[in-house]
Amino acid sequence: MNPPASRGSVVVTGAGGALGRAISLRLGADGFAVGVLGREGELLRETAALLADQGVAHRVLPVDLRDADAIDAALTETEAHLGPLAALINNAAIYPARPFLEIPQEEYEDVVRVNQTAYFLAAQGAARRMASHGAGAIVNVGSITFHGGWGDLASYVSTKGAAVGLTRALARELGPMGIRVNAVSPGAFPTKAEEIHENPEQYSQMVIGRQSIKRRGTDAELAAVVSFLVGEDSAFVTGQTINVDGGWVMT
């Protein structure tokens, strides 16, 4: 494994998924050492192999985001092996689809644990470490579903709204410590998440019809915006939510 990158380390949660993998690869190319965190061990190893091919220092962090102690331990492990934590990307999420009146409390609480509580705990642990060296960036991945609502996804949509609220609160409080906090809200990217739709092709045509840019977005295009938000070019940007959605939502 290569020595820690000069820009420090970054932890990407949900790094085995399509968006998390693209973000990991882009930040690795930007000069960060990358902690790839998530529950799916095989998918994390696939991301790690791609990072290795790029010559990027990395660490596989198999963590269940329902486990608060494991989240903190992963951040400690990252700094021990990859250097000071420079950025955190809260990306992991689960999205069970079910009509609101049929959602059991246990399922809702599970979505909150992964999509909301884990974001809070990871950000808290990261900020404590970043504050010690007076700089850092946190990016929370939201969703355009928060802006317009979405049928059969009440649990998911509500937690993505919480991610935006957390972003604004932390930007206000952590700014004096040199820590910037922003969010990105992806549109309908062609990922595994589309499996919840009965007719993916019909869904894709609906997406393109609603966007101003008449094509599907790519994972790399979302990763490029995350790269901007953790980089020096956004040094005066905090508390913002950027929709990366081809012009679907404009409010």
Rank of each mutant, 00 (worst) to 15 (best):
R98W: 04
A97C: 03
L61H: 05
D64Y: 09
D72P: 01
A74T: 08
P62I: 07
L82W: 02
L82N: 01
I89C: 04
V60L: 11
A70M: 02
E106Q: 15
I94C: 02
A70E: 02
I89W: 01
A87W: 06
L88E: 04
P104H: 03
T78R: 06
L101D: 02
D72R: 05
A70V: 09
A80N: 15
H81E: 12
E107F: 00
L82F: 04
P96I: 01
A74R: 03
D69L: 03
E109S: 15
V56A: 14
R98C: 11
P96H: 08
L82K: 02
E77A: 15
Y95Q: 00
P84L: 14
D72K: 02
I71S: 05
A68Q: 03
I94L: 00
A97I: 01
I71K: 05
R59I: 11
R66M: 03
V60H: 14
L101N: 04
V60K: 11
F100L: 15
D67H: 08
E79V: 12
A97K: 01
E77Y: 08
E109L: 14
I71F: 05
H81G: 09
L88Y: 05
N90D: 08
P96C: 08
L85N: 03
G83T: 14
G83R: 13
P99I: 00
E102S: 09
E77R: 08
L75I: 09
A68C: 03
N90K: 01
L85K: 07
E107D: 12
G83D: 09
D110P: 02
L82I: 08
T78H: 06
E106D: 15
F100A: 14
T78Q: 08
E109Y: 07
I89N: 03
L61I: 13
L65Y: 01
E107S: 10
E107Y: 00
L88N: 04
A68V: 12
T76Y: 00
A68K: 06
P99H: 01
L65W: 02
V60C: 13
A80Q: 15
A93W: 00
D69Y: 02
A93Y: 00
